[in-house]
Amino acid sequence: MRIVVLGGLGAWPSADQGCAGFLVERRGFRLLIDPGYATLQPLLTRLSASAVDAVYVSHGHPDHCADLQPLLRARALAERSAPALPVYAPTGSLDALLAIDESGLLDTAYELHEFTPGDDLDVGPFTVRTWSLPHWVPNAGARISAGGTALAYTGDSGPSPALVELARDADLLIADATYVDEIPDRQVGSLSSAAEVGRYAAVARAGAVLLTHLWPGTDPEAAMAATRQAYAGPVTVARPGVVVDLPG
């Protein structure tokens, strides 16, 4: 299993990278996770729009799904022979995004598979187990497994016992680390810090941690240091072009 980072910021993109987005590849199948702001361009440096086999969206905030819309436009308008793209998302989370274009333009470009966080999914070669994790809108953390390898992804999440279950013995945990340590009062319960990630990753015995959704301007070294206060395994920060190869 190969994970390619397309972006690693939360809220909005910077001049040099986009929001959280990941390409997960196994044996020729390409699963795009959370195509947020400014993730389509780095994706297209690696493959064509028609080469994406499926999309998984954790929740409907635009920093996690906005670039799905131009991806579908590319498939509908430039690559018309491409099959309908399977898109998996919590029920209703993409209604606003999919309604912004002219009526009918993208109808043949995608096939929407809506689910309730907590459902299990089969996506190509992957088994996807989902969890409902605390955020302002329904958010589905995902454990993506194939060939004995497990990738855990939180989407955006506040503290929850489910995070330990999600990350338990995962080969890689991709975790919301919006803040380094202190979380502003109005966001407590809906977002996480790098320090919190370290604590639950240690309990879960995750094999490695990739911090994502950092607030623009956050010092990556400070975020990694906060995670390492409690977690002794490998820690890195999601940046465009980072590639992680997992066995299986």
Rank of each mutant, 00 (worst) to 15 (best):
L6C: 08
L9Y: 10
P13M: 08
Q17A: 06
E25M: 09
L32W: 13
I33W: 15
D34C: 13
Y37W: 14
Y37G: 03
A38H: 13
T39P: 11
L44Y: 06
L47T: 05
A49F: 09
V52N: 05
G60E: 07
L68F: 08
L71G: 01
L72P: 03
A74K: 14
R75Y: 08
S81N: 15
S81R: 15
P86L: 11
Y88P: 06
T91W: 04
L97R: 09
D107G: 02
Y110W: 01
E111G: 11
H113V: 06
G118S: 13
D119G: 12
D120K: 15
P125L: 04
P125T: 05
R129Q: 14
S132K: 14
G141E: 02
I144V: 14
T149H: 11
S157H: 01
L163T: 01
L163H: 11
V164T: 15
R168W: 10
D169V: 01
A175T: 00
A175C: 06
T178N: 10
D185C: 00
Q187C: 07
Q187A: 05
S192D: 10
V203N: 06
G207L: 10
G207D: 02
P216N: 10
G217C: 05
T218G: 03
P220V: 00
E221T: 14
E221Q: 15
M224P: 02
A226V: 02
T227E: 03
T227R: 05
R228P: 03
Y231F: 15
D245P: 08
